[in-house]
Amino acid sequence: MVRISVRDVMTTHVASVRPDTPFKDVAELLVRRGVSAVPVLEEDGRVAGVVSEADLLRKEEFREQYYGEDYRPRLRARLRRRLAGRGEDGQEKAGAATAAELMSAPAVTVGPDTSTVTAAQLMDEHGVKRLVVVDGEGRLIGVVSRRDLLKAYVRDDAELRRWVEEAIPEQARWNDRTGIVVQVQDGIVTLSGYTSTRTEATAAVHVAKGLGGVVGVREGLVWERDDRLELPLIWD
């Protein structure tokens, strides 16, 4: 089945820093490269953690530590800090001078063959905007961001149609799909025509919905036989 993986959409030219990189150099790198975070790499290329804009801005959130007791962080910053339950961690990062002291560790990582669906779920689960892509040894090979994941939906309708037509017989193990008509417009797949059984129709819809880049699926299949009604009843 055609599946879009992290490898297909990730960024491979990634800016990175070392654990001893000074605070100011990290900030300048983020601004110069126009990115919101950078991985921190050990000498052997393994990912030690990630420094984000949020980590750097801890110094601003706890600015009263440097500018006197009269300074009060913005309400949003105070609430975020309280709800996250990381006041002490924030204070430590406010006084950080190097990437090692700033970084969030361990980094949330994925392998290059991870599906974009799983990557999106991990971002949501961990509340991060990007994932570090590593090889089997934990070494950096790329970064995938939320914007990168959106690339899966920037696909030509003709290409999506071909993917669906190829995926349906492969997944459902049919020898003939001549009864199914696949149409795609603006990423929305319409399945029409007929199948021999209801199970085959359901499988076709399931396969189409599982393909990367498919915005939605409209069901218009008709089956000749409802094989679900033929299943034997199981009595307690």
Rank of each mutant, 00 (worst) to 15 (best):
S5F: 10
V6G: 04
V6K: 02
V6Y: 02
R7K: 13
D8C: 07
V9G: 04
M10S: 00
M10K: 01
M10V: 08
T11L: 07
T12Q: 15
H13K: 15
V14G: 04
A15K: 09
A15R: 08
P19C: 10
D20V: 12
D20R: 10
T21S: 13
T21C: 00
T21E: 00
P22C: 11
F23Q: 11
F23H: 15
F23Y: 15
K24H: 12
D25H: 12
V26S: 00
V26P: 03
A27T: 08
A27E: 01
A27S: 06
E28K: 15
E28P: 09
L29W: 08
L29Y: 07
L30I: 07
V31F: 10
V31D: 12
V31K: 15
R32M: 10
G34W: 13
V35R: 05
V35I: 14
S36M: 07
S36P: 01
A37K: 02
V38K: 06
V38C: 09
V40W: 14
V40M: 13
E43R: 10
D44R: 12
G45V: 06
R46V: 11
R46S: 15
R46P: 09
R46W: 10
R46N: 05
V47H: 01
G49A: 06
G49Q: 08
G49R: 10
V50N: 06
V50H: 07
V51A: 03
V51P: 03
S52M: 11
S52V: 07
E53P: 04
E53H: 02
A54W: 04
D55G: 06
D55A: 05
D55I: 02
D55C: 07
L56E: 05
L57T: 09
R58F: 08
R58Q: 14
E60H: 13
E61D: 11
F62W: 08
R63W: 12
R63V: 07
R63K: 11
Q65V: 14
Y66G: 11
Y67C: 12
Y67Q: 13
Y67R: 10
G68K: 06
E69I: 06
E69V: 03
R72C: 02
R72N: 05
R72I: 08
P73S: 05
P73D: 01
P73E: 01
L75R: 09
L75P: 03
R76H: 00
R76A: 02
R76K: 11
A77W: 05
A77R: 01
R78Q: 14
R78A: 15
L79T: 03
L79R: 00
L79S: 02
L79G: 00
R80Q: 11
R80L: 14
R81C: 04
R82V: 10
L83K: 06
L83T: 08
G85M: 01
R86E: 05
R86S: 11
G87Q: 09
G87A: 10
G87K: 09
G87H: 11
E88W: 05
E88Q: 07
G90H: 01
G90K: 03
E92I: 10
E92W: 07
K93W: 00
K93L: 08
K93M: 09
